[in-house]
Amino acid sequence: MTLLRVVARPMIASLFVYGGISAIRSPKVRAQRAEPVADLIRKAAPQTPVDAATLVRVNGAIHVGAGLALATGRVPRLSAAALAITMPPTTLSGHRFWEETDPAARANQKVHFLKNLAITGGLLLSTLDPDPQKKFIARRAKDKVVEASETVQAQLGR
């Protein structure tokens, strides 16, 4: 692993691990903001018992698990993808700047909204980050196709 990855992955992951632990420990503060997401799930799947506090805890657990995986370099692309998938609902429920009436609160929420947008972009880029010891997935797939083609050609006697 390069020095850049050794430093950068834990830096971005720290936000998720810290926030995830906080969400698991005290979900009630965030549950109020997560209620619109719980309502959407209830409308989409009425038979599913959904509680906003449980959603907050599940999201927190994903952030802790995927954050630790990203920080340690274990399945970094998958963990970055998991974190990126959780960001839109987290951002839309937690930083609804368009609903704020106080200009200072609106500006603060807008900054957090845009910060989360930027972090999501970084996570999405991380899903494409190749492991320096491994060929990029598209290249590995192409090599497998070439290898299979050569095997078939050899068996056919060409």
Results as ranks from 00 to 15, higher is better:
54 T>G: 04
52 A>S: 13
33 R>Y: 14
49 P>V: 05
67 G>D: 09
40 L>I: 04
61 A>H: 04
46 P>M: 02
50 V>P: 00
33 R>H: 14
46 P>L: 01
71 A>W: 07
52 A>Y: 01
46 P>I: 04
53 A>T: 02
41 I>D: 00
48 T>C: 07
56 V>D: 02
35 E>V: 09
53 A>M: 08
56 V>K: 00
35 E>M: 11
34 A>R: 04
31 A>V: 11
66 A>P: 05
45 A>W: 06
47 Q>A: 15
30 R>W: 10
69 A>F: 08
42 R>N: 10
61 A>T: 09
39 D>T: 14
31 A>D: 03
60 G>A: 09
48 T>E: 01
37 V>Q: 06
55 L>F: 01
37 V>P: 01
65 G>L: 15
31 A>N: 07
54 T>Q: 10
65 G>K: 07
32 Q>L: 12
56 V>P: 00
64 V>G: 09
70 L>G: 10
45 A>M: 09
68 L>Q: 08
44 A>N: 10
38 A>L: 07
69 A>R: 03
57 R>E: 04
32 Q>H: 04
57 R>P: 00
69 A>Y: 01
50 V>S: 01
53 A>E: 11
55 L>P: 02
31 A>P: 05
62 I>D: 08
29 V>K: 14
67 G>R: 01
44 A>I: 07
58 V>S: 14
51 D>R: 06
29 V>C: 00
57 R>Y: 03
30 R>K: 15
55 L>D: 05
53 A>Q: 09
68 L>N: 06
44 A>H: 07
71 A>N: 03
40 L>R: 13
51 D>Q: 11
37 V>N: 05
67 G>F: 03
62 I>V: 15
47 Q>S: 15
62 I>A: 14
60 G>I: 06
43 K>D: 02
70 L>K: 02
